[in-house]
């Protein structure tokens, strides 16, 4: 069963804006995630399954705007996002 996280404003948090851990079937769309101290959106090192991150605006976050530590973003689809910095070319 899919979870949806949409149209939230996640700004100015001292650590990570959105932290996604473990196995999850979720869609993140149309959120604004800016000015957070570390990552804007970050996936757990343990990876995810069925994650879609689309059409979000993530700007000026401290470490990276978007972060997927899983090689080639396996298990996740990143598309249509507006951002400055990301750690992999599979993040769009």
């Amino acid at each position: 069963m899919t979870s949806t996280v949409s149209h939230n404003v996640i700004n100015g948090n001292t650590g990570v804006g959105v932290l996604i851990g473990g196995s999850i079937d979720a869609t993140f769309q149309n959120n604004v995630i800016s000015g957070n101290g570390q990552y804007g959106i970050s996936v757990s090192l343990f990876g995810v399954f069925g994650l879609k991150v689309t059409n979000n605006t993530a700007l000026a976050n401290g470490t990276l705007d978007l972060n997927d530590p899983v090689p080639n973003c396996a298990g996740s689809v990143w598309s249509g996002n507006t951002f400055f910095t990301a750690n992999q070319s599979c993040i769009h």
């Binding site: 100015g12 990570v16 932290l19």
Partner: peptide, 23 residues
């Protein structure tokens, strides 16, 4: 699982939204 999280404002927390396992 099957969560709908929408139109919230998360500001000046340590972590804004943290989603764990969906099991």
């Amino acid at each position: 699982s099957n969560l709908t999280i929408t139109a919230n404002t998360l500001w000046q927390n340590n972590v804004g939204i943290s989603l764990g396992d969906a099991v």
